[in-house]
Amino acid sequence: MLEKVKKLIEKAGWPRVIIGLFLLSLFFTAPFVGIRVSTSISDTIVRFAMNAVLVLSLIPMVQSGCGLNFGMQLGVIAGLIGAITSIELGVTGIAGFLTAIGIAIPFAVLLGFFYGLLLNMVKGDEMVVATYVGFSSVAFMSMMWLLLPFKSPNMIWGYGGEGLRTTISVEGYWLGALNNFLSIRIGYFFFPTGTIIFISLIALIVWAFFKTKLGTAMTAAGSNPVYARAAGVSVDRMRLLSVVISTVIAAVGILVYEQSFGFIQLYMAPLLMAFPAVAALLLGGASVSKASMGNVIVGTFLFQGILTMTPSVMNNLIKSDMSEVIRIIVSNGMIVYALTRRMKVRT
């Protein structure tokens, strides 16, 4: 019996078990400290929906062997440009949301293309280069947000100021465009049906893609480049494609996030956005070289669960806000753990 349990834990991985148990205990304690369980579950689901696409965006690059996409900020920037432009154009509702996506995608493809070329030049050290490329791009765009000629009064600093504001509200444009679509509300429980449908759609597309010939070629390029090359697959092309796809999905992801969160955050806000997404993916069981849809769902759920439950439950227990510190420890601990696993020797 003990053997069986032990085997199960090993298969699931110790970190997941520990975090899962921690989360369960938080859910159990909740009612005793005055937190409504239905609100908690609902909040967790909403946060899951907000972040899932961003975590999903990491899969193509992991599968193709480019490692964890610490440069996700490039995709986020494309998404931000799309969001701002759609507000500048004044489009509302689902149309506004789709406009944002429509504008973001070409930028994402462009950025992803050059990003991919760069990563192909630095095979073996993608992650550290990606990290600082991501940071620099956020700093660079911070300069740009001040200079770009946007005019909409909702976005510019008041009293004749120049440049975009740090936080721009999407209320009145496409706040909740997905969340509220066909949403279910039972008492205190809210289910963002629209967003879940949207996520499932994207997940389906990605999953289907990896079942195609092209998708399998991409996975082969990551897991066994020599074999892939012998089979006629251009490893470099696959990697480039994966980077472009990842960047595009990340651009869509930040838009999904914003329609739920309600604000577009510019300047240095996206600086550290890659890390929670990476941590969530790893928490779901992925490794530096292998990630699946299941990892995304389990990981995002666990991670967002912790982030939702810790503040409310622990604050009532210990009367102080430990959530930020716990988030830092859990997410970065996960990433360090994943980076110290034995790596397959890739040529």
Binding site: M127, V128, F275, I328, N332, G333, I335, L339
Partner: peptide, 16 residues
């Protein structure tokens, strides 16, 4: 082979 990335993230972790 991944010392630099790891040291970056380790820095964040120990900060926590």
């Amino acid at each position: 082979g991944r010392e630099m990335v790891t040291s970056i993230i380790l820095g964040f972790f120990i900060n926590g």
